Amino acid sequence: MTSGHKLAQRHGVSDYKVTTSSNPVQPTGFVYVETDRYLPSPSPDLSPSDDDGKVMQKLGAWAKEPLNELSYLRRIAEGKPFDEDGHDEFAPTLLSGLVIWAPFYLPDAHFKAYIQIAQSVLGKHSWKKVVGYRYLLQGKGVDGVKEAVSNENFVANIVAVGGQGKAFDFGVDSHRDGVEVVEVLSALVEKIRKTEGGGGVKLVLNHFCKPDLSTPEWPSYSRWSAAMSGLSNDPHVYMKLSGAFNEFAPSPTPSSVQELLTTLTPYFNHLYDTFGAKRLMFASDWPVCNVGGPQGEKDGEERNWSVWRSVVKAWMDGKGLEDEEKEWIWWKTGVEAYGIEGF
């Protein structure tokens, strides 16, 4: 990501509050999900001869950007912002949970070493806000997803954090990487379940696996829907309604709620029919929703969030969902999936 990229600009809690200010009901909290920070190489340059101190040093240098993100999150959680952070001392009251990045494919000892570093950077108070971890498989192609499935460390580390009561977020890109990546996810879930201690790990899928929305009739829709049906059979798999604006490319993103619904309704309906309201959650994907957002990436900064909220609301109203079901999708599913207390 270049320094001039839209997402490289500041997006603080104060910016989020401005963005959501037009919502009839103001959010009382949010879950911060890691932002896929830069890594200089796919894996750290670790040697079997490295002692514990050397491992910690190398991991810290390699994961500098994800750890910088944790430092930023600590300042939010503790209400001690830098001037350029874009939040104030009241931000901690909105921060309901953190979903952070971790290198799940590393061997157990190195994974634990990274978690130890992350705990140190976040501090004891902020670490209590961690409700889950995320590792994105999108952009890695079907071979990359298959590699994750076959990686014993990847699976074992997911089970380990799940055993601590933390959710695991992950996502694939069936638009650009092909629909087979969604089908491979079933093998990953099955492997997690067959691992000792993996039966109850809560798994959260992002962006309904990024289907290709550039055409009204995606040729792979039937395979996507079959894969969703299979994944929904697992009672501990949750799905986020999010991230759709990016998936209309190379076609322009429709500019009206009704036009967006014309394309999205079959997907939403299928997810509702399979997962049910109690395992679907609204997620804004802010600020990424501005990339490809129907209100524009520059002038629509404060409006794309509202458009997505309006799309989800209009679908629920049109579908005739009961008020209780709507509450689950708006916030209760998120609280349940991430084990957030105080609601």
Rank of each mutant, 00 (worst) to 15 (best):
G4A: 12
K6C: 14
L7Q: 09
A8M: 02
Y16K: 04
T20S: 05
Q26M: 14
E34M: 11
D36Q: 11
P40N: 00
P42E: 15
P44M: 04
K54M: 07
E69G: 13
R74D: 13
R74C: 12
E78I: 09
H87V: 04
E89C: 05
F90E: 15
W101P: 04
A102N: 03
P103M: 05
L106S: 12
Q116I: 05
H125K: 14
R134E: 08
Y135D: 07
L137D: 10
K140C: 15
V142Y: 03
V145I: 13
V149F: 13
V161Q: 02
G165R: 01
D173H: 14
L185T: 05
E190P: 14
R193V: 07
E196T: 15
G199W: 05
H207E: 13
S214L: 08
E217L: 08
E217R: 03
W218E: 15
S229K: 13
S229M: 10
S232E: 06
H236W: 00
A249H: 09
P250Y: 08
T253K: 01
S255W: 10
S256T: 11
L260T: 03
T263I: 04
P266S: 10
F268R: 12
L271Q: 05
L271N: 09
F275S: 01
M281I: 00
D299R: 11
E301K: 02
E302Q: 07
W308A: 08
K313E: 13
A314K: 09
I329Q: 06
